[in-house]
Amino acid sequence: MVDDALFQLGMDSARLNTAQTEEEVTTRPYVPECNDHFIERDGVVCAGEHLIIDLFDAERLDDLPFIERTLIECVRAAGATLLHIHLHPFEPNGGVSGVAVLAESHISIHSWPERAYAALDVFMCGKAQPRRCVDVLKAAFRPGRIEVKELLRGQGA
């Protein structure tokens, strides 16, 4: 079953080798001309911006087609590239878990409609603008409260 899920995500050829050992990691300076899609935010060079978004007192968290359309709108607003989207509904509470896999990374959602709560991760590199997803999510789910935390991933890589 895990292999099927990995295959659906295009990860069937990636296998964990428990015999692998940790290798020494070397760092290199940031080169703006390099096409590795690293970004610079507020003077910090990093792999990308990762937003942790909590929606409280939110609506339509059990409406799978609506959630899919909203994630696609987030991708469009951020200027990202959608590769694949997979959402899974849960019964009996109607919660949804899923991910939009992007060329620039991903957007994931886990919802608890019985608590009017959703947890989202929005991680993007390159020229994509993940902060634009916040307005899309606010308009779609109408949360009474929203919390957004930012992580700059891959600093020093």
Rank of each mutant, 00 (worst) to 15 (best):
Y30K: 13
Q155S: 00
A103W: 01
R132M: 02
R131K: 00
S13R: 15
R15I: 15
A119D: 14
L9S: 01
G79V: 07
S111L: 01
V101L: 05
A118M: 06
C125N: 13
A14Y: 15
H37C: 10
I85T: 05
T27S: 05
G144F: 03
T81I: 06
L71A: 05
I72N: 10
E49W: 01
D54G: 07
P65L: 10
N93S: 12
H106N: 12
A58R: 04
A139V: 10
V134S: 03
D57V: 14
G144I: 09
V2K: 12
L83S: 04
I52R: 13
L9Q: 11
G48R: 01
G98K: 04
P113V: 02
M124S: 08
C74Y: 07
I53F: 01
C46F: 05
D4E: 14
R76Y: 14
L152W: 03
N93P: 01
T21V: 09
C34K: 15
L102G: 09
L61T: 00
R60E: 02
G156I: 11
A119Y: 13
G43T: 12
F90W: 12
G43Y: 07
I39N: 05
D3F: 14
N93Q: 10
D42E: 15
G144E: 08
R15T: 15
I39L: 02
I52C: 01
L151I: 03
A140H: 00
D62H: 13
I109H: 02
G154P: 06
P65C: 10
I146S: 02
E33A: 14
F141N: 03
H88G: 06
I72A: 10
L55T: 01
A80C: 12
E33V: 11
F123T: 07
M11P: 03
T81W: 09
E104S: 09
S13Q: 15
A19W: 13
F66P: 06
F7R: 15
S97F: 02
A140N: 04
E40V: 06
P130M: 04
V45L: 03
L151P: 07
A100N: 10
A47T: 11
G95Q: 06
G144N: 03
T70R: 05
E68G: 04
H110N: 02
G98Q: 08
H37V: 07
V45P: 03
T70S: 04
R142I: 06
G94M: 03
P113L: 05
V134K: 04
P130K: 00
L64I: 09
A5Y: 13
G48L: 03
P89T: 05
E68I: 04
H110W: 06
L87M: 10
G95F: 10
A157L: 15
G48D: 08
T81M: 00
P65V: 05
R60P: 06
F90G: 00
T26P: 03
D57H: 12
A157P: 14
E33R: 15
E22G: 09
A19G: 13
L71P: 02
V96C: 01
C46T: 00
V31K: 15
V75M: 03
E59V: 11
H106D: 09
Q129M: 08
V75K: 01
A139H: 11
V75N: 11
R15Q: 14
S108C: 08
G156E: 12
K149Y: 11
A119T: 11
E22F: 11
I109W: 03
A58L: 08
V75Y: 05
F123Y: 11
E73S: 11
G144Y: 09
G43E: 11
E24I: 07
I67Q: 09
